[in-house]
């Protein structure tokens, strides 16, 4: 899996704590800017509730693993660091998996194999490798929270559009009138690609305009 990391600390002084949190929301949004973790982004966003559950599960895992990796960063030998990160991530994924199963079995079944697959979500491993292994626990916690929240927002952006057009509802509530003709394609994988592409178009358009002005 390809892991792209961005060097953003172009200014000399270390960024403030709040900046570590905020950068994940928009400037380095994992879905729309880093374009990482595409597997859950495309696969489980066919409804807003699925997207939210997936986003929150990932949020929990990324916050916990970032903090733990950061705490253990001096103890983990360089040669086996990736394996150690995966082990830490897998521990929290197992926790989330059981938690979700206990809370809502239907949701767990709707998300299917994609909950265990959080282990290989490259956003999480990317943050562990690129950030948590080099920074303090507090910074890693904030970074993980920002990235996890950014990921959740990204998934929600896709899930809401797809559910609204594909089923005429939002979070399970019928919003559009009964005679609304549902766009079946939005619930299919093709709709995921279309929606992601159009969101990227919109976001790049605004980012580029900001750079120009």
């Amino acid at each position: 899996m390809e892991i792209r990391t961005k060097v953003i600390n172009s200014h000399d002084k270390t960024p403030s704590h709040s900046d570590e949190f905020i950068k994940g929301l928009w400037r380095e949004n994992p879905v729309f800017v880093q374009v990482l973790g595409m597997c859950p982004t495309l696969a489980v966003t066919n409804s807003a509730i699925n997207a939210l559950a997936m986003g929150l599960a990932t949020f929990f895992v990324i916050v916990m693993s970032n903090t733990l990796v950061s705490l253990l960063r001096h103890a983990i030998p360089q040669q086996v660091r990736i394996a150690s990160y995966i082990l830490i991530i897998a521990t929290f994924v197992t926790l989330v998996d059981y938690l979700l199963q206990a809370m809502s079995l239907t949701l767990h079944q709707a998300l299917g194999a994609f909950v265990p697959l959080i282990v290989v979500n490259c956003v999480i491993l990317g943050r562990a490798e690129a950030f948590a292994s080099k920074n303090s626990a507090a910074r890693s916690f904030l970074d993980g929270a920002g990235m996890g929240l950014g990921f959740t927002l990204g998934l929600l952006c896709l899930g809401m559009v797809r559910e609204l057009l594909g089923s005429g509802s939002l979070f399970g509530f019928m919003l559009l009138p009964d005679n609304f003709e549902k766009w079946t394609i939005m619930l299919l994988p093709g709709g995921g690609f279309f929606t992601l592409g159009l969101w990227l178009l919109v976001i790049n358009y605004f980012n580029r305009r900001k750079v120009q002005s």
Binding site: E181, W183, T184, I185, M186, L188, G190
Partner: peptide, 10 residues
């Protein structure tokens, strides 16, 4: 193709 996938019955 888009229409076929979006509105199969129509």
């Amino acid at each position: 193709a888009f229409l076929q996938a979006a509105f199969p019955s129509a």
